[in-house]
Amino acid sequence: MTSRVVLVSPATSPALREARFDADCSIDERGAARARAAAGSLPRAARVVTSPGARCRETAAELGLRGEDAPGLAPLDVGRWRGRTLDEVGAGEPGAVARWLTDPTSAPHGGEAVQDVCTRVGTWLDAAARVDGRTLAVVEPEIVRAAVLHALGLPAEVFWRLDVPPLTATELSGRAARWNLRLGRPLVAPDTALDG
Rank of each mutant, 00 (worst) to 15 (best):
Thr102Trp: 02
Val164Ala: 11
Val89Thr: 04
Val188Pro: 00
Pro104Glu: 01
Val164Arg: 11
Ala128Asn: 07
Ala23Trp: 01
Glu18Pro: 00
Cys118Asp: 02
Ala107Gly: 01
Ala113Gly: 00
Glu58Ser: 06
Gly111Gln: 08
Arg145His: 08
Ala32Met: 09
Arg47Asp: 13
Val6Tyr: 01
Ile143Cys: 12
Arg30Thr: 14
Ser13Gln: 04
Leu16Trp: 09
Glu112Ala: 04
Ser51Phe: 01
Thr135Pro: 08
Arg30Val: 14
Pro165Arg: 11
Ala39Gly: 10
Ser51Ala: 15
Ala127Pro: 02
Val164Lys: 11
Cys25Phe: 05
Gly92Asn: 05
Leu16Val: 10
Val158Cys: 13
Ser13Arg: 00
Gly53Gln: 09
Arg145Phe: 05
Leu183Asp: 06
Arg84Met: 10
Asn180Arg: 15
Leu162His: 10
Arg84Pro: 03
Arg34Tyr: 02
Ala177Cys: 10
Thr85Val: 06
Ala46Phe: 03
Leu154Gly: 05
Glu112Met: 06
Asp24Val: 05
Leu42Gly: 01
Trp160Glu: 08
Thr168Phe: 10
Leu7Ala: 05
Trp160Met: 07
Trp124Ser: 07
Glu93His: 06
Cys118Lys: 00
Asp191Trp: 13
Pro94Trp: 05
Thr59Asp: 04
Ser173Lys: 06
Ala189Asp: 15
Asp69Lys: 09
Ala156Tyr: 01
Glu58Trp: 00
Asp28Phe: 04
Asp103Pro: 02
Ala32Cys: 08
Arg34Ala: 15
Glu112Phe: 06
